[in-house]
């Protein structure tokens, strides 16, 4: 992205309030071209490969997932998972692409007794 963009470039969505042990969805949406290196621009020049090379999501240090390979994720990828937690806390997602750009986003969930 050549132009500086104010604001966010990702969404991490969790319900604000859940019961202890209740299953809920975590949704992660990241703005990233996931350039494969096989596409050309309108002038016929190859667009340089730039994929996400690391991406992980944790809850207070406990892993939700850690991506080892993301070769075929779509541009502006989304990933959703079903999780359950026992206490209130924060989900943190972190990623880095082949050009060294890093990103992160977090979202809090409050847990009440079941």
């Amino acid at each position: 992205m050549s132009e500086p963009i104010p604001g966010r470039n990702a969404r991490l969505l969790v319900p604000p309030l859940v019961r202890t042990g209740e299953e809920f969805q975590v949704r992660l949406l990241i703005q990233h071209p996931m350039e494969t290196g096989f596409r050309r621009d309108v002038d016929g020049n190859i667009l340089e490969v730039n994929l996400l090379e690391s991406l992980s999501l944790d809850f207070e240090g406990q892993p939700v997932f850690n991506a080892l390979t993301m070769n075929a994720l779509t541009a502006n990828p989304f990933l959703t998972f079903v999780v359950a937690v026992k206490q209130s806390g924060k989900f943190n997602a972190r990623w880095r692409d082949m050009k060294g750009n890093v990103g992160s986003i977090s979202a809090s969930v409050r847990v009440v007794a079941a």
Binding site: P63, V64, F65, L68, L73, V82
Partner: peptide, 9 residues
């Protein structure tokens, strides 16, 4: 795609 899954799932 390859993912390691964690305990929060």
């Amino acid at each position: 795609l390859e993912l390691e899954l964690g305990s929060v799932l």
